[in-house]
């Protein structure tokens, strides 16, 4: 396809990558595009990419506004430093892409919203069995040492997604996004055929639509965790009693976990027509659980069945707690 002569295209495209509260998997996902990375660097200069090239924050600060054409930003926002970088990169970029579940929905780090800074620090620095910290020292934003004062960025009580911090132009969902999705997005940018601003660059289907397993009428009488199942049958996992987030999750990954006989854990985030992944999953799961003989079931039996679902919050919002309707736990004062 001939490349359009947009302002972005006159010279080599200028791109950047950044990581905030992330695991590094999204960085690896970029490298997972394999030799296509050569196509990328053939048409684009990478100006800033802390994991791979030696550039400093001040290099970004010195750029004129909107100097970067596209910035791919992965990771959630949980510290002052990440927030500052989100503001800075927003200012310096024409297009800001939230890259991966953490940036898009808060991701796994977002599960920390069942706690606050104090609880996280207590576990990480004090109560952890392998930690020896008699003086209970935890990071402080300011500490005096004999050479002067040292500072650290603030650690927030609540984890946020990127678009809860700055305006985001496009979203690439998944933990991490697949190589195909990344190339689709990259090509759409290069060929100047991006969808409307604010779009998720991904299909409107659910994971179930992409899943290879045969589906019949869904009804289950018992919940089973993966380790309790000796042999996975060649049919929908949910119908086998294994909680699979497929029906509540946006596709685009070609149901890759199901290809490995593992249930979908929901990394694609909510389906496009739903506001809340967990709410949708509660609705779907409760509709099919214990359907057989429901008229004869006592309330206690229903309770027992529901109790089989261990940690509904962690299961249904594994990747989306910060952007769900109720985005954090209420802490006791």
């Amino acid at each position: 396809m001939p490349k359009k002569d947009s302002s972005i295209q006159k010279e080599k495209m200028r791109i950047s990558f950044y990581w905030a509260a992330s695991c590094g998997g999204c960085e690896i996902a970029v490298l997972d595009i394999d030799e296509k990375i050569l196509d990328v660097v053939a048409i684009a200069d990478i100006l800033f990419w802390p994991v791979a090239i030696d550039t400093k924050y001040k290099d970004v600060e010195e750029m004129s506004d909107k100097y970067i054409d596209v910035c791919f930003f992965n990771g959630a926002i949980r510290t002052e430093e990440q927030e500052e970088m989100a503001f800075l990169l927003r200012k310096k970029s024409k297009i800001l892409v939230a890259f991966g579940a953490c940036a898009v929905h808060g991701g796994i780090p977002g599960l920390a919203n069942v706690a606050n800074k104090k609880e996280v620090f207590d576990v990480a620095y004090i109560d952890n069995p392998s930690t020896d910290n008699k003086d209970k020292i935890v990071p402080k934003t300011k500490s005096k040492v004999k050479e002067g004062e040292l500072t650290l960025p603030e650690f927030f009580d609540t984890v946020k997604s990127l678009d809860q911090t700055v305006e985001v132009d496009y979203y690439l969902h998944g933990c991490p996004p697949t190589a195909d999705q990344i190339m689709t997005a990259f090509n759409a940018i290069v060929e100047d055929r991006l969808p409307p601003k604010g779009s998720v660059i991904g299909p409107l289907k659910s994971v179930c639509d992409e899943c290879r397993f045969e589906k019949t009428t869904k009804k289950i009488q018992k919940i089973r965790r993966v380790y309790e199942v000796d042999k996975i049958e060649e049919k929908c996992l949910l119908e086998q009693g294994i909680i699979c987030m497929g029906p509540a999750t946006r596709g685009g990954c070609n149901a890759r976990c199901l290809d490995a006989n593992m249930p979908c854990t929901g990394c694609g985030g909510p389906t496009p027509n739903s506001l809340d992944q967990g709410g949708k999953m509660i609705s779907s799961l409760a509709s099919i659980l214990g359907v057989e003989g429901e008229e004869a079931m006592s309330d206690e039996e229903v309770d027992t069945l529901i109790r089989e679902i261990v940690d509904p919050l962690g299961t249904f919002y594994k990747y989306t707690l910060p952007t769900s309707i109720i985005n954090r736990k209420v802490m006791k004062e």
Binding site: G278, L289, V302, I306
Partner: peptide, 15 residues
Amino acid sequence: NRRMKLLKTMLVELG
């Protein structure tokens, strides 16, 4: 009934 029971267990986790 089942939805509400499941929702409640989750609301407890949300404090």
